[in-house]
Design a protein around this nucleic acid. Sequence first.
DNA 1: CGGACTCTTGACATCTCTCAAGTATAGTGG
DNA 2: CCACTATACTTGAGAGATGTCAAGAGTCCG
Lengths: 251, 251
Amino acid sequence: MAINLAHSGTASNGAVIHRPWPVIVGGALARGTRARGAFIPSEDFRSLDEVGTTVTFARNETIFNEGDGAKYAYRLVSGAVRLCKLMADGRRQITDFYLDGEMFGFLDLDNYDFSAEAITKVVLVRYPRSHVRRIEDEDDAFRREMTSMLHQRLSRTHALLVMLGRQTVKERIASFLIQMAERLDGVAEDSASIDLPMGRQDIADYLGLTIETVCRALSELKRAGVIAVPTTHQIVVNDIETLRAIIDGDN
Amino acid sequence: MAINLAHSGTASNGAVIHRPWPVIVGGALARGTRARGAFIPSEDFRSLDEVGTTVTFARNETIFNEGDGAKYAYRLVSGAVRLCKLMADGRRQITDFYLDGEMFGFLDLDNYDFSAEAITKVVLVRYPRSHVRRIEDEDDAFRREMTSMLHQRLSRTHALLVMLGRQTVKERIASFLIQMAERLDGVAEDSASIDLPMGRQDIADYLGLTIETVCRALSELKRAGVIAVPTTHQIVVNDIETLRAIIDGDN
DNA sequence: CGGACTCTTGACATCTCTCAAGTATAGTGG
DNA sequence: CCACTATACTTGAGAGATGTCAAGAGTCCG
């Protein structure tokens, strides 16, 4: 087995190509596609199906760079992707993570607005943007779906803006954990196990912190019994209420 | 005279209603509507003209609140507006400023995603969203314009994300000043005078800082001769090259 | 089993915030 | 038009939080 990552269950072998659209269990899609901010395709996207090509990227490989001509749009079959902005001196800000089944690269204009990198080994389906644009022109429902995705993105970005500008370290970490629990797992009633595909440095670059600060915050939550950390990439939330309380400003 | 603000020249009297579309001097609109991130209307928006109502808000008045039903879209005739997100305990993050001639409230879904407040006395034209949606359905060019505005907003928000997550105080202030110089003034060859409509607290809430930190950073630039501050709301950039160098990481 | 990488922890430095006082500015009413 | 009061801005001193540097522990993968 290659990498000890969360999404291995979905399959990282060739078989996945026979089931290109993610299977949504329960009523998850109906319940909250937008609320959860996950860009999971609806019926409208099936018209793209025939023109998709399956491609694979290794861990830490670059899928495209900021400023590149936006030739393709992508749908994640398995694995996880980070979108980032780089500063001249190497400082990095991750603007979003994409997980299993989500779509990206559909919304950019002529050039990509940021780089996309594979966090784990990644399998994705790639669609020519020219084709996407044609469908956009022809199909009202598809276009509405795209606009809706753009709104979701903007809304998610605004939430991150508040985190970076006005939240403390504890609050950011708590927000991040709950966000990931909701996106990865879905149902998080009381206790949830989160399998994080990304490493500590990625979390740090997403939350505007250093890796050491992320570690310390997680350790503190562990010490307080709020979470358990069986392995580096697995986090068990024992007490989600405390996490929620932290977000609401109870330090 | 009421308020010592930048945009008094454009007129804050009733006469402005006879000239509802901003007059763009020189080639400013053609040169850089998108590049500058200013949402200045194009021809496509004229179809809205008949249904607009002029309304006025006093300084610090709320135009709408986050979560309110998005009944109207707005175009700023004169004055300045801030969009903000509030946390339960009162912490505030400003996500964007809107200046003279720009449009806002067009892009939200059913409910506004943030509050809008008048920074100065504000004159704006208000359009019913139902009408906007109808035009959107009927007019391809208009719809494209809206999508383009949405992209601009997203791109601007990403830039702010990098500032909040990874830039130092000096870098943020320098970025802010250059951004404002470009948006308010346009041509900033060597030295530029910026008339800031917003106060220090607004700048702080935009850049994720405290008001004291903003003051200190400005004072330091003043001491170094990079800027002059004739009045609180007026900033003269003496040495834009140094500002640019600061952004690129030369501290 | 071993080397490379990632994560964790500690000690210390630095930066930004907090609290507090003083100064300047703007809007109000005489 | 001026004086007054409220508001906004500036500056200082000290506290607290986060970053930096460094070492050690853990984990992954060949």
